[in-house]
């Protein structure tokens, strides 16, 4: 069920979460630099959206951006030297960095 925009409603933020914006920004940058094509992006995002639909995920922005992130990871692993294993390892490194950093301090990756 849709509804017309309420012109009196305060404008909401364009992106609900920073990672939503970062996902689309990285995708657009990789398209602009030629590492992925716009057609590949549309096809892979479409497949990820169909998969979320088939899995019965709620039809929300969070689900959409989750599918966009999955599509971006798929294309990065397929078209660049960054593999799925690299992504997983780097995520673990970020988790370790967050756990080792006192609250309020900037979180940095261990250069080693």
């Amino acid at each position: 069920m849709f509804a017309p925009d309420d012109p009196l409603a305060p404008a909401g933020p364009v992106f609900a979460e920073p990672w939503h914006a970062q996902t689309l920004a990285i995708a657009d940058a990789l398209i602009s630099s030629g590492h992925i094509t716009a057609a590949d992006w549309a096809e892979t995002l479409g497949a990820a959206l169909r998969a979320t639909d088939a899995a019965g995920r709620a039809d929300t922005s969070e689900t959409y951006y989750g599918a966009a992130l999955t599509a971006l990871e798929t294309l990065t692993a397929r078209n660049t030297l960054v593999s799925a294993a690299d992504l997983l390892l780097r995520k673990q490194q970020w988790i370790a960095a967050y756990r080792q950093t006192p609250h309020g301090k900037p979180v940095m990756l261990d250069p080693g």
Binding site: W19, Q22, T23, L69, T76, V82, D86, L87, R90, K91
Partner: peptide, 11 residues
Amino acid sequence: ALRVKALESLA
């Protein structure tokens, strides 16, 4: 958010 951080930092 962590997966995006991993992707962005590696990219």
